[in-house]
Amino acid sequence: MTEYKLVVVGAGGVGKSALTIQLIQNHFVDEYDPTIEDSYRKQVVIDGETCLLDILDTAGQEEYSAMRDQYMRTGEGFLCVFAINNTKSFEDIHHYREQIKRVKDSEDVPMVLVGNKCDLPSRTVDTKQAQDLARSYGIPFIETSAKTRQGVDDAFYTLVREIRKHKEKMSKDGKKKKKKSKTKCVIM
């Protein structure tokens, strides 16, 4: 069974824990209790493949930012979460993405942009803004509501699919490099 290491990042209060708990335990946590770091595991079937999701729910508070490099190193894919009623959390996505790329030393890291709290009427981040940002990053965008469960499975499952595509691409690139290195030079 394939294991996928997913990391949920975003500013404090955007609903990272609520999304994760909704996926794992099928219930909505409405009281806000700032996370330092929590880890969850769940076995699911995605596109006919049974897999184990190892999900790291991270601290959004700035005082825990020193811990970010460590979990970013171990993560295979990242859910970059903002709240649709919090423009600052949307603007912060850029910083999370840049930090992930720096730590992973790669421009090509599996990510999904997630606009959470889409059940709320007080939207300050337009869907088109988020779609445009995701398009500019070359990553999928999904709106979710941890409260109603809308888009929750889709967000995590899409990230797994992005990781699969990335692994497939990397193995193809690896095979191309191996083929090239088999060419021999004969000096007579």
Results as ranks from 00 to 15, higher is better:
109 V>Y: 04
53 L>T: 07
104 K>I: 12
34 P>M: 04
19 L>V: 10
156 F>C: 04
94 H>F: 15
153 D>N: 07
137 Y>F: 06
171 S>G: 13
73 R>W: 04
11 A>H: 10
136 S>E: 13
24 I>R: 04
56 L>F: 00
7 V>K: 12
60 G>A: 00
114 V>W: 02
164 R>V: 08
25 Q>A: 11
135 R>G: 10
88 K>F: 15
92 D>F: 06
151 G>A: 05
132 D>A: 05
134 A>N: 08
150 Q>K: 03
23 L>H: 12
165 K>T: 15
162 E>C: 04
151 G>N: 09
173 D>A: 10
50 T>R: 11
138 G>A: 08
126 D>K: 11
66 A>K: 02
22 Q>Y: 04
80 C>L: 12
11 A>V: 12
62 E>N: 04
108 D>I: 05
77 G>S: 04
164 R>M: 10
129 Q>D: 15
49 E>N: 13
172 K>Q: 06
156 F>Y: 13
119 D>V: 05
58 T>F: 00
34 P>N: 01
8 V>P: 02
181 S>V: 15
127 T>E: 06
129 Q>M: 07
110 P>V: 03
40 Y>H: 02
68 R>N: 01
112 V>K: 02
150 Q>H: 02
73 R>H: 10
142 I>R: 12
78 F>Q: 01
15 G>K: 03
69 D>H: 03
152 V>F: 11
76 E>I: 08
127 T>C: 11
83 A>C: 10
10 G>T: 01
176 K>T: 14
6 L>F: 06
154 D>V: 07
44 V>E: 11
27 H>E: 15
75 G>N: 05
55 I>K: 00
51 C>A: 11
133 L>N: 14
95 H>N: 15
68 R>A: 04
84 I>K: 14
87 T>P: 07
164 R>F: 12
62 E>H: 03
52 L>W: 11
185 C>H: 09
120 L>E: 11
153 D>E: 08
173 D>S: 14
8 V>S: 05
95 H>P: 15
119 D>E: 07
134 A>P: 11
128 K>H: 05
119 D>P: 07
82 F>E: 06
19 L>Q: 13
98 E>I: 01
134 A>Y: 10
62 E>R: 03
84 I>S: 14
134 A>S: 09
183 T>Q: 15
112 V>T: 05
27 H>W: 10
123 R>G: 13
167 K>F: 07
132 D>M: 05
154 D>M: 06
92 D>K: 04
123 R>E: 13
115 G>C: 13
73 R>T: 06
63 E>G: 03
119 D>G: 05
98 E>S: 05
60 G>Y: 00
78 F>M: 03
101 K>R: 09
71 Y>W: 02
137 Y>C: 07
59 A>G: 08
160 V>L: 11
163 I>F: 05
181 S>G: 10
158 T>C: 09
45 V>E: 13
112 V>E: 01
122 S>D: 12
40 Y>I: 01
12 G>R: 03
84 I>R: 11
44 V>N: 14
118 C>G: 08
100 I>T: 03
103 V>R: 04
173 D>Y: 08
145 S>C: 11
113 L>G: 03
182 K>W: 04
118 C>V: 09
77 G>P: 03
105 D>K: 14
56 L>C: 04
48 G>M: 07
32 Y>T: 02
81 V>P: 03
29 V>Q: 11
86 N>P: 11
160 V>S: 13
100 I>F: 04
187 I>T: 08
180 K>W: 10
183 T>Y: 15
118 C>E: 06
88 K>E: 13
127 T>D: 13
78 F>S: 02
50 T>M: 13
67 M>I: 11
94 H>P: 02
162 E>S: 10
74 T>Q: 05
188 M>E: 15
180 K>A: 14
183 T>V: 04
153 D>C: 06
101 K>T: 13
89 S>I: 02
49 E>H: 13
170 M>W: 15
169 K>Q: 11
125 V>R: 08
151 G>K: 04
96 Y>H: 06
41 R>P: 14
6 L>W: 05
19 L>S: 14
156 F>I: 08
73 R>A: 08
35 T>V: 00
106 S>A: 10
30 D>E: 13
178 K>D: 14
139 I>H: 08
102 R>H: 15
68 R>S: 03
7 V>Y: 04
80 C>T: 03
105 D>C: 06
74 T>F: 05
18 A>M: 08
29 V>N: 08
107 E>Q: 10
168 E>N: 04
86 N>D: 15
65 S>D: 03
81 V>G: 05
122 S>C: 09
122 S>E: 09
102 R>F: 04
123 R>Y: 10
58 T>Y: 00
42 K>L: 11
60 G>Q: 00
41 R>G: 10
69 D>V: 01
63 E>M: 03
146 A>F: 01
174 G>E: 11
35 T>G: 00
102 R>Q: 14
116 N>T: 15
187 I>Q: 09
78 F>W: 01
178 K>T: 14
6 L>T: 08
181 S>T: 15
93 I>N: 03
152 V>K: 14
139 I>W: 05
60 G>C: 00
126 D>T: 07
10 G>D: 03
67 M>E: 00
109 V>L: 04
180 K>C: 11
160 V>G: 08
149 R>F: 06
86 N>I: 02
101 K>C: 15
9 V>H: 10
167 K>N: 07
2 T>W: 10
45 V>N: 15
35 T>H: 00
92 D>Y: 14
18 A>W: 01
185 C>I: 14
42 K>E: 11
153 D>G: 07
23 L>P: 00
97 R>T: 13
40 Y>W: 01
114 V>R: 01
45 V>Q: 15
73 R>N: 05
5 K>Q: 14
184 K>A: 05
103 V>P: 01
158 T>L: 09
159 L>I: 05
24 I>C: 05
149 R>T: 15
23 L>N: 14
37 E>D: 01
43 Q>L: 08
72 M>K: 01
178 K>W: 05
152 V>N: 09
177 K>D: 11
29 V>Y: 05
181 S>Q: 13
102 R>C: 15
61 Q>I: 04
75 G>I: 01
169 K>P: 15
54 D>N: 06
22 Q>W: 09
110 P>L: 03
79 L>A: 05
141 F>I: 15
36 I>S: 01
99 Q>H: 08
188 M>P: 15
45 V>P: 09
25 Q>C: 13
24 I>S: 04
176 K>C: 09
182 K>P: 05
107 E>W: 07
108 D>E: 08
80 C>I: 05
150 Q>P: 15
128 K>R: 05
162 E>Y: 11
53 L>I: 11
16 K>C: 06
78 F>Y: 04
153 D>Q: 08
159 L>F: 03
165 K>H: 07
10 G>K: 01
48 G>Y: 08
182 K>N: 03
145 S>Y: 08
7 V>E: 03
155 A>R: 02
92 D>W: 14
184 K>E: 10
48 G>C: 05
177 K>Q: 15
14 V>D: 10
137 Y>S: 13
100 I>H: 01
127 T>I: 13
183 T>L: 05
96 Y>P: 02
45 V>K: 12
26 N>Q: 14
95 H>L: 06
178 K>L: 12
77 G>L: 09
36 I>R: 00
55 I>S: 05
177 K>F: 04
56 L>M: 04
60 G>H: 00
160 V>E: 12
30 D>C: 09
119 D>A: 15
169 K>D: 14
74 T>A: 05
187 I>R: 12
44 V>P: 12
124 T>H: 09
185 C>A: 15
13 G>Q: 12
170 M>I: 03
11 A>R: 09
135 R>H: 08
89 S>W: 10
179 K>L: 13
10 G>E: 04
30 D>S: 13
25 Q>P: 04
182 K>Q: 12
40 Y>M: 01
186 V>E: 15
73 R>I: 06
6 L>R: 00
129 Q>S: 10
166 H>F: 06
86 N>R: 07
12 G>V: 05
11 A>W: 09
109 V>N: 03
44 V>R: 10
11 A>T: 14
116 N>L: 15
27 H>N: 11
69 D>C: 02
82 F>C: 14
5 K>P: 13
25 Q>N: 15
132 D>V: 05
152 V>D: 09
77 G>V: 13
102 R>W: 06
149 R>L: 05
73 R>K: 07
63 E>I: 03
187 I>H: 11
31 E>F: 15
39 S>E: 03
15 G>D: 01
59 A>Y: 00
174 G>I: 08
187 I>A: 15
78 F>I: 01
96 Y>Q: 03
